[in-house]
């Protein structure tokens, strides 16, 4: 039985240690690393960690002046380096997700709100730079009417619906009449709202139904994994699960479950 007691002790010890900011950052970093989409930016936490880093740096400078034992200095240095790595890696992971899903993020206010002020600025310039690049290299070289936004953001699905779709497009082309002597595709407008629905989006999106490893922090109880309530799992505290990210998204956001 003693081994069980040991486990309990170490579990409670790690639970109390998890309250330091560095531990919290480690948790945020782990969640960010495992989640397919960008999570909410914890500004207060990052600010606190940066303050602590600065304090540690000052302490190290003092050590250097007062000639403290090299071993002690290098231990402090190691601690500092690790925290710095964690912070840098956390910010980097987020930037790389923003790079990848720029267009997807720009379409949703909820996703935009998850970013820090500086990240929002970064996302905006990423979008502009990519747009400029694609316009310059591809769109400007296509025939009149094919290089505009309309077909940039949406693209045809490759199903048999294509024929009916084309027929519809042709009708609109005819009705609009030639512009500058050329027939062109209709541009997006309120006149043809149903047309927009016929196009499938070709913007890269994070795969939210991917599986993630996660660990519960406390008892969640019976948890519904799908919309219809066919799959219910009992989430017990401190247990490991492999679940679809999509179904536990809310728990991750609420901090009730950790991704690992």
């Amino acid at each position: 039985m003693s081994s069980w007691d040991d486990d309990d002790e170490s579990a409670s010890a790690s639970a109390s240690a998890a309250t330091t900011d560095v531990e919290l950052l480690k948790r945020a970093w782990r969640n960010e690393k495992a989640a397919p989409e960008v999570l909410r930016f914890d500004k207060d936490l990052v600010d606190r960690v940066r303050e602590q880093i600065q304090l540690l740096e000052e302490t190290l400078d003092d050590f250097a002046d007062s000639g403290v034992d090299d071993l002690v200095v290098s231990l402090y240095q190691m601690d500092l380096d690790r925290t710095l790595f964690l912070l840098r890696s956390y910010l980097r992971l987020r930037l790389q997700k923003i790079e990848k899903y720029t267009m997807h993020i720009s379409r949703s206010q909820d996703l935009k709100d998850r970013l820090s002020e500086q990240e929002q600025k970064f996302a905006k310039s990423c979008g502009e730079i990519m747009e400029k690049h694609l316009k310059q290299s591809v769109l400007s070289k296509l025939p009149y009417g094919y290089g505009d936004e309309f077909v940039t953001k949406q693209s045809l699905s490759s199903t048999e619906d294509d024929m009916t779709l084309v027929i519809e497009i042709l009708h609109i082309c005819m009705n609009c009449g030639p512009e500058n002597g050329l027939y062109s595709l209709p541009t997006i407008s309120s006149e043809h709202p149903d047309l927009i629905c016929l196009f499938r989006h070709s913007v890269p999106e994070p795969q939210l139904d991917t599986f993630v490893f996660c660990k519960t922090k406390s008892d969640v109880g019976a948890f519904q994994l799908d919309d219809i309530g066919e799959e219910v799992v009992d989430l017990v505290a401190d247990d490991l699960y492999v679940l679809r990210y999509k179904s536990i998204k809310g728990l991750v956001e609420g901090g009730r479950i950790d991704l690992i």
Binding site: S89, L91, F122
Partner: peptide, 26 residues
């Protein structure tokens, strides 16, 4: 693409200088 790389690097650089933390090391 050369221009894209230059502009994109500049966007990262301006994020780094705003945050005042170098993300290209470590």
């Amino acid at each position: 693409e050369k221009e894209y790389f230059k502009n994109h690097s500049a966007a990262i650089k301006s994020y780094i200088s705003e945050m005042d933390i170098d993300l290209t090391v470590d």
